[in-house]
Protein backbone atom coordinates (compact mmCIF):
# COMPACT_ATOMS: atom_id res chain seq x y z
CA UNK A 1 0.00 0.00 0.00
CA UNK A 2 1.44 3.25 -1.11
CA UNK A 3 -0.03 5.08 1.83
CA UNK A 4 2.03 3.05 4.27
CA UNK A 5 5.42 3.57 2.67
CA UNK A 6 7.05 6.97 3.03
CA UNK A 7 7.55 8.60 -0.35
CA UNK A 8 11.12 9.51 -1.27
CA UNK A 9 11.77 13.17 -0.80
CA UNK A 10 12.68 15.01 -3.97
CA UNK A 11 15.57 16.82 -2.38
CA UNK A 12 17.58 17.38 -5.54
CA UNK A 13 14.82 19.08 -7.50
CA UNK A 14 16.32 22.49 -6.86
CA UNK A 15 19.51 21.53 -8.69
CA UNK A 16 17.78 21.99 -12.02
CA UNK A 17 15.72 25.17 -11.64
CA UNK A 18 14.93 25.49 -15.35
CA UNK A 19 13.36 22.06 -15.67
CA UNK A 20 11.37 21.68 -12.53
CA UNK A 21 8.32 23.67 -13.69
CA UNK A 22 7.16 21.21 -16.31
CA UNK A 23 6.98 18.06 -14.13
CA UNK A 24 5.30 20.06 -11.42
CA UNK A 25 2.62 21.21 -13.86
CA UNK A 26 2.01 17.62 -14.91
CA UNK A 27 1.80 16.55 -11.33
CA UNK A 28 -0.94 19.10 -10.72
CA UNK A 29 -2.85 17.92 -13.80
CA UNK A 30 -2.67 14.26 -12.77
CA UNK A 31 -3.66 15.09 -9.23
CA UNK A 32 -6.56 17.23 -10.45
CA UNK A 33 -7.83 14.48 -12.74
CA UNK A 34 -7.64 11.93 -9.97
CA UNK A 35 -9.40 14.30 -7.61
CA UNK A 36 -12.18 14.91 -10.11
CA UNK A 37 -12.59 11.19 -10.64
CA UNK A 38 -13.01 10.55 -6.93
CA UNK A 39 -14.61 13.73 -5.71
CA UNK A 40 -17.35 14.27 -8.29
CA UNK A 41 -19.33 11.09 -7.42
CA UNK A 42 -18.87 11.81 -3.74
CA UNK A 43 -19.96 15.40 -4.10
CA UNK A 44 -22.97 14.24 -6.12
CA UNK A 45 -23.82 11.73 -3.41
CA UNK A 46 -23.51 14.37 -0.75
CA UNK A 47 -25.68 16.75 -2.77
CA UNK A 48 -28.32 14.01 -3.08
CA UNK A 49 -28.37 13.45 0.68
CA UNK A 50 -28.78 17.13 1.57
CA UNK A 51 -31.16 18.05 -1.27
CA UNK A 52 -34.57 18.82 0.13
CA UNK A 53 -37.75 20.38 -1.31
CA UNK A 54 -37.21 23.23 1.15
CA UNK A 55 -33.54 23.62 0.17
CA UNK A 56 -30.75 22.27 2.36
CA UNK A 57 -31.23 19.65 5.07
CA UNK A 58 -28.98 17.31 7.05
CA UNK A 59 -31.95 15.19 8.13
CA UNK A 60 -30.68 12.12 6.27
CA UNK A 61 -27.56 12.05 8.46
CA UNK A 62 -29.62 12.42 11.57
CA UNK A 63 -31.73 9.46 10.58
CA UNK A 64 -28.77 7.15 10.09
CA UNK A 65 -28.38 6.31 13.73
CA UNK A 66 -32.03 5.78 14.37
CA UNK A 67 -32.60 3.67 11.26
CA UNK A 68 -33.65 0.14 12.26
CA UNK A 69 -30.82 -2.36 11.91
CA UNK A 70 -28.03 0.20 11.50
CA UNK A 71 -26.18 -0.52 14.71
CA UNK A 72 -26.63 -4.28 14.63
CA UNK A 73 -25.50 -4.63 11.00
CA UNK A 74 -22.50 -2.35 11.45
CA UNK A 75 -21.42 -4.16 14.62
CA UNK A 76 -21.86 -7.49 12.87
CA UNK A 77 -19.66 -6.33 10.01
CA UNK A 78 -16.98 -5.05 12.37
CA UNK A 79 -17.05 -8.27 14.38
CA UNK A 80 -16.80 -10.31 11.18
CA UNK A 81 -13.87 -8.15 10.09
CA UNK A 82 -12.00 -8.63 13.35
CA UNK A 83 -12.57 -12.40 13.30
CA UNK A 84 -11.54 -12.61 9.64
CA UNK A 85 -8.35 -10.65 10.24
CA UNK A 86 -7.42 -12.86 13.17
CA UNK A 87 -8.05 -16.10 11.30
CA UNK A 88 -6.44 -15.08 8.02
CA UNK A 89 -3.28 -13.76 9.69
CA UNK A 90 -2.94 -16.80 11.94
CA UNK A 91 -3.33 -18.97 8.88
CA UNK A 92 -1.22 -17.10 6.34
CA UNK A 93 1.76 -15.87 8.34
CA UNK A 94 2.92 -19.19 9.83
CA UNK A 95 2.32 -20.91 6.49
CA UNK A 96 4.34 -18.32 4.59
CA UNK A 97 7.14 -18.44 7.14
CA UNK A 98 7.25 -22.22 7.10
CA UNK A 99 7.42 -22.28 3.31
CA UNK A 100 10.10 -19.59 3.24
CA UNK A 101 12.30 -21.28 5.82
CA UNK A 102 11.61 -24.94 5.26
CA UNK A 103 10.43 -25.51 1.73
CA UNK A 104 11.28 -22.58 -0.55
CA UNK A 105 10.39 -24.67 -3.58
CA UNK A 106 6.74 -24.66 -2.52
CA UNK A 107 6.56 -20.88 -2.68
CA UNK A 108 5.06 -20.74 -6.19
CA UNK A 109 2.45 -23.31 -5.13
CA UNK A 110 1.49 -21.25 -2.08
CA UNK A 111 1.35 -18.13 -4.21
CA UNK A 112 -0.99 -19.73 -6.74
CA UNK A 113 -3.23 -21.15 -4.02
CA UNK A 114 -3.45 -17.79 -2.28
CA UNK A 115 -4.17 -15.95 -5.53
CA UNK A 116 -6.86 -18.38 -6.66
CA UNK A 117 -9.77 -16.52 -4.97
CA UNK A 118 -9.11 -13.61 -7.33
CA UNK A 119 -9.78 -15.86 -10.30
CA UNK A 120 -12.86 -17.64 -8.99
CA UNK A 121 -15.90 -15.30 -9.20
CA UNK A 122 -17.59 -14.81 -5.80
CA UNK A 123 -20.87 -16.00 -7.29
CA UNK A 124 -19.34 -19.39 -8.08
CA UNK A 125 -17.80 -19.48 -4.69
CA UNK A 126 -21.02 -18.73 -2.86
CA UNK A 127 -22.99 -21.20 -4.98
CA UNK A 128 -20.61 -23.89 -3.79
CA UNK A 129 -20.89 -22.85 -0.17
CA UNK A 130 -24.66 -22.75 -0.42
CA UNK A 131 -24.81 -26.26 -1.79
CA UNK A 132 -22.64 -27.57 1.00
CA UNK A 133 -24.67 -25.81 3.68
CA UNK A 134 -27.95 -27.16 2.32
CA UNK A 135 -26.62 -30.70 2.55
CA UNK A 136 -28.31 -32.08 5.62
CA UNK A 137 -30.34 -35.26 5.30
CA UNK A 138 -32.87 -35.96 8.04
CA UNK A 139 -31.02 -38.90 9.52
CA UNK A 140 -28.03 -36.65 10.31
CA UNK A 141 -30.17 -34.17 12.24
CA UNK A 142 -28.98 -35.33 15.65
CA UNK A 143 -25.29 -35.66 14.80
CA UNK A 144 -22.62 -33.13 15.77
CA UNK A 145 -21.93 -32.68 12.04
CA UNK A 146 -25.40 -31.33 11.41
CA UNK A 147 -25.28 -29.17 14.50
CA UNK A 148 -21.98 -27.74 13.38
CA UNK A 149 -23.48 -26.77 10.05
CA UNK A 150 -26.33 -25.07 11.88
CA UNK A 151 -23.93 -23.28 14.24
CA UNK A 152 -21.90 -22.02 11.29
CA UNK A 153 -25.00 -20.24 10.05
CA UNK A 154 -26.03 -18.62 13.31
CA UNK A 155 -27.37 -15.24 12.07
CA UNK A 156 -26.06 -13.46 15.19
CA UNK A 157 -22.54 -14.35 14.17
CA UNK A 158 -22.32 -16.35 10.94
CA UNK A 159 -18.98 -18.17 11.21
CA UNK A 160 -19.45 -19.35 7.66
CA UNK A 161 -19.01 -15.75 6.50
CA UNK A 162 -15.73 -15.52 8.38
CA UNK A 163 -14.53 -18.66 6.63
CA UNK A 164 -15.61 -17.31 3.25
CA UNK A 165 -14.01 -13.92 3.86
CA UNK A 166 -10.76 -15.57 4.92
CA UNK A 167 -10.62 -17.17 1.49
CA UNK A 168 -11.53 -13.94 -0.27
CA UNK A 169 -8.93 -11.97 1.69
CA UNK A 170 -6.08 -14.42 1.08
CA UNK A 171 -4.76 -12.83 -2.14
CA UNK A 172 -4.44 -9.40 -0.54
CA UNK A 173 -3.03 -10.72 2.70
CA UNK A 174 -0.52 -12.84 0.79
CA UNK A 175 0.66 -9.89 -1.30
CA UNK A 176 1.03 -7.63 1.67
CA UNK A 177 2.86 -10.14 3.88
CA UNK A 178 5.05 -11.29 1.02
CA UNK A 179 6.23 -7.72 0.44
CA UNK A 180 6.93 -7.38 4.17
CA UNK A 181 8.86 -10.64 4.34
CA UNK A 182 10.92 -9.66 1.31
CA UNK A 183 12.01 -6.51 3.09
CA UNK A 184 13.66 -8.35 5.98
CA UNK A 185 16.22 -11.15 6.05
CA UNK A 186 13.82 -13.62 7.66
CA UNK A 187 16.17 -16.57 7.80
CA UNK A 188 18.99 -14.69 9.47
CA UNK A 189 16.68 -13.01 11.97
CA UNK A 190 15.07 -16.33 12.87
CA UNK A 191 18.42 -18.02 13.24
CA UNK A 192 19.83 -15.17 15.30
CA UNK A 193 16.83 -15.40 17.62
CA UNK A 194 17.06 -19.19 17.85
CA UNK A 195 20.75 -18.81 18.62
CA UNK A 196 19.82 -16.49 21.50
CA UNK A 197 17.71 -19.28 22.95
CA UNK A 198 14.27 -18.21 21.68
CA UNK A 199 11.54 -20.81 21.26
CA UNK A 200 9.51 -20.82 18.04
CA UNK A 201 6.54 -18.88 19.51
CA UNK A 202 9.00 -16.36 20.91
CA UNK A 203 10.64 -16.01 17.48
CA UNK A 204 7.22 -15.50 15.96
CA UNK A 205 5.84 -12.88 18.31
CA UNK A 206 8.99 -11.09 19.44
CA UNK A 207 10.98 -11.06 16.23
CA UNK A 208 8.87 -11.67 13.13
CA UNK A 209 5.66 -9.85 14.06
CA UNK A 210 7.33 -6.62 15.29
CA UNK A 211 9.38 -6.42 12.11
CA UNK A 212 6.34 -7.00 9.92
CA UNK A 213 4.23 -4.34 11.60
CA UNK A 214 3.45 -2.32 8.53
CA UNK A 215 2.84 -5.41 6.38
CA UNK A 216 0.50 -6.82 9.01
CA UNK A 217 -1.25 -3.46 9.33
CA UNK A 218 -1.65 -3.31 5.57
CA UNK A 219 -3.01 -6.85 5.38
CA UNK A 220 -5.42 -6.10 8.22
CA UNK A 221 -6.65 -2.95 6.58
CA UNK A 222 -7.25 -4.59 3.22
CA UNK A 223 -9.16 -7.37 4.95
CA UNK A 224 -11.21 -4.86 6.91
CA UNK A 225 -12.07 -2.92 3.77
CA UNK A 226 -13.03 -6.14 2.02
CA UNK A 227 -15.30 -7.33 4.81
CA UNK A 228 -16.95 -3.92 5.29
CA UNK A 229 -17.80 -3.81 1.59
CA UNK A 230 -18.57 -7.44 0.76
CA UNK A 231 -22.10 -7.90 -0.53
CA UNK A 232 -22.41 -10.91 -2.83
CA UNK A 233 -21.57 -13.72 -0.42
CA UNK A 234 -23.45 -12.25 2.54
CA UNK A 235 -26.57 -11.47 0.50
CA UNK A 236 -26.75 -14.83 -1.22
CA UNK A 237 -26.30 -16.67 2.07
CA UNK A 238 -29.08 -14.43 3.50
CA UNK A 239 -27.16 -12.68 6.25
CA UNK A 240 -27.43 -9.01 6.95
CA UNK A 241 -24.10 -7.32 7.62
CA UNK A 242 -23.59 -3.64 6.85
CA UNK A 243 -23.43 -3.63 3.02
CA UNK A 244 -26.52 -5.81 2.73
CA UNK A 245 -28.32 -3.52 5.15
CA UNK A 246 -27.41 -0.44 3.04
CA UNK A 247 -29.01 -2.03 -0.01
CA UNK A 248 -32.00 -3.03 2.08
CA UNK A 249 -32.50 0.47 3.48
CA UNK A 250 -32.09 2.07 0.06
CA UNK A 251 -35.35 0.45 -0.99
CA UNK A 252 -37.30 2.48 1.56
CA UNK A 253 -35.07 5.46 2.43
CA UNK A 254 -32.88 6.33 -0.54
CA UNK A 255 -31.35 9.43 1.02
CA UNK A 256 -30.44 7.63 4.22
CA UNK A 257 -28.77 4.79 2.33
CA UNK A 258 -26.51 7.21 0.43
CA UNK A 259 -25.77 9.06 3.64
CA UNK A 260 -24.80 5.76 5.23
CA UNK A 261 -22.52 4.99 2.29
CA UNK A 262 -20.73 8.29 2.76
CA UNK A 263 -20.56 7.61 6.47
CA UNK A 264 -18.97 4.20 5.90
CA UNK A 265 -16.49 5.78 3.49
CA UNK A 266 -15.50 8.22 6.21
CA UNK A 267 -15.23 5.38 8.69
CA UNK A 268 -12.95 3.45 6.35
CA UNK A 269 -10.75 6.48 5.89
CA UNK A 270 -10.41 6.93 9.60
CA UNK A 271 -9.43 3.30 9.99
CA UNK A 272 -6.88 3.66 7.18
CA UNK A 273 -5.41 6.67 8.91
CA UNK A 274 -5.22 4.81 12.22
CA UNK A 275 -3.64 1.76 10.59
CA UNK A 276 -1.04 3.78 8.73
CA UNK A 277 -0.13 5.61 11.92
CA UNK A 278 0.11 2.33 13.83
CA UNK A 279 2.19 0.72 11.10
CA UNK A 280 4.57 3.61 10.64
CA UNK A 281 8.16 2.65 11.38
CA UNK A 282 9.98 4.31 14.20
CA UNK A 283 12.21 7.05 12.92
Amino acid sequence: MAALTPAPIAGNASSAPGRKERPRAWRVVVLALAAVYFLVPMAASFWFTVDDPQGFSLDAYGQIFSAPGFASSLLLSLALAVATIAVVLLLALPAMLAVRLGAPRLRPVLEVVCTLPLVVPPITFVAGIGTVLRFGPEYLATTPFYQTIIALQNPDFPVVLVLAYVVLALPYVYRSLDAGLRAIDVRTLVEAARNCGASWPHVMFRVIVPNLRSALAGASFLTLALVLGEFTVARLLSFQPFPVWIVYISGSQAQVSVAVSLFSLLLTWLVLLAVSLAGRNRS
Binding site: D185, T188, L189, E191, A192, A193, R194, N195, C196, G197, A198, S199, V207, P210, N211
Partner: peptide, 16 residues
Protein backbone atom coordinates in the same frame (compact mmCIF):
# COMPACT_ATOMS: atom_id res chain seq x y z
CA UNK B 1 19.37 -24.70 18.03
CA UNK B 2 17.92 -22.66 20.90
CA UNK B 3 19.38 -24.99 23.53
CA UNK B 4 22.96 -25.13 22.32
CA UNK B 5 25.74 -23.49 24.22
CA UNK B 6 27.09 -21.60 21.21
CA UNK B 7 26.79 -17.92 20.29
CA UNK B 8 26.83 -17.10 16.62
CA UNK B 9 27.71 -14.04 14.55
CA UNK B 10 26.33 -14.06 11.02
CA UNK B 11 27.70 -12.95 7.71
CA UNK B 12 24.79 -10.65 6.91
CA UNK B 13 23.69 -7.99 9.36
CA UNK B 14 21.50 -9.88 11.74
CA UNK B 15 20.50 -7.38 14.43
CA UNK B 16 16.77 -7.19 15.10
Amino acid sequence: ANRRDAGMVFQSYSLF
